[in-house]
Amino acid sequence: MNHVTQEEIVMAYYGERFAHLDDCEECRTELARIAAVLDRVDAPEVPEPDADYESRVWQRLEWRLRGEKKRERRREWIRWGAVAAVVALAFVAGLFWQRENRAVAPQSVSKPAQSPNQIVSQQQNQQRQRDRILLVVINEHFDDSERILVELSNLKPEEGLDIGPERARAEGLLASNRLYRRSAEDRGEENVATLLDDLEPVLMQIAHAPSQVSANELRAIQKRVEAKGLVLKLRVVRANVRGKTAASYQQPNV
C-alpha cells in the first residue's frame, strides 16, 4: 500500500481530503501526531492598538501622500514637456520639409503648367518624406525603449533598487509613445502600431513604479517584459523600420 507523504498529511490537517487516510491506520496515527503539535500552535497574541490607531495612521499617511502628490504633479510636467518636445520636433521637421520643397519650386514655376502626373508625383514625394521622418523618430523611440527594458531586465531583484533614472526616461517615452501609435495607425504601419501598443502598459508600469523598487516589483516588471517578448520584438521591428527608412532614401524623388 502506498502511504500518503508527510506533506500530504500536513495538507490533510489543513482540510485536504485523502481517501487513503480512511483505510490506513498508520497514516491516521501520523496525522494525529501532527495535529497534536499544530493544535497547540495558537495565533501569537497581537497587541491591540489603541482606539486612536486609525486616525494616527491617517495623520502619518496624509503627510506622505502630500509628498506623493507633489511628485505626481512633477511627473505630469515631465509628461507634458515630452509632448511639447515631440510637437516642436514635428514643427521643425515640417519647416525642413517646406524649405526642401521651396528649393524645388522655382524649376516648376518656370514651367508653364504641371501635368496631373506631375502633381501626383509631387504629392507622393511629400508623403514619402513625412513617412521617412516618422520612421526615423519612431526608430529612435524604439531604441530608447529597448535600452530601458534591457537595463531593467538585467538588474538582479534586490530590495530598494533605485530605478529613478529609468523611471524618468519611461515617463518621457510614455507621452510620445501614444502620439507615435496614433500616427503609425493613421499611416497603416500595423506592426509598428501593435508594438507601440504592447510597449505602452510596460512603460506605464515603469513610469508609475516608485524610485526605489522592491524585489517583487522589479520581478513583476521583468516578467511582463519577458512574457511579451518585448526586447526581441523591438529588435525585429527596429530592423524592419531601418530597412524601410533606407529603402525610402534609395527611392528617387520623382
Binding site: 501569537p44 497581537v46 497587541p47 492598538p49 490607531y53 486609525e54 495612521v57 491617517w58 499617511l61 506622505r64
Partner: peptide, 28 residues
C-alpha cells in the same frame, strides 16, 4: 479606506513581523 482596513492589516503584519513598530511601518 485607511480607517476601515488599517487595524486588520496591522494584525496580519504583526503576525508576520512579530513586532509592533515593524507592523506600523508595514501598514504605512
Amino acid at each position: 479606506l485607511v480607517e476601515r482596513h488599517s487595524r486588520g492589516i496591522y494584525r496580519t503584519a504583526y503576525r508576520i513581523t512579530s513586532n509592533s513598530a515593524d507592523a506600523d511601518d508595514v501598514v504605512q
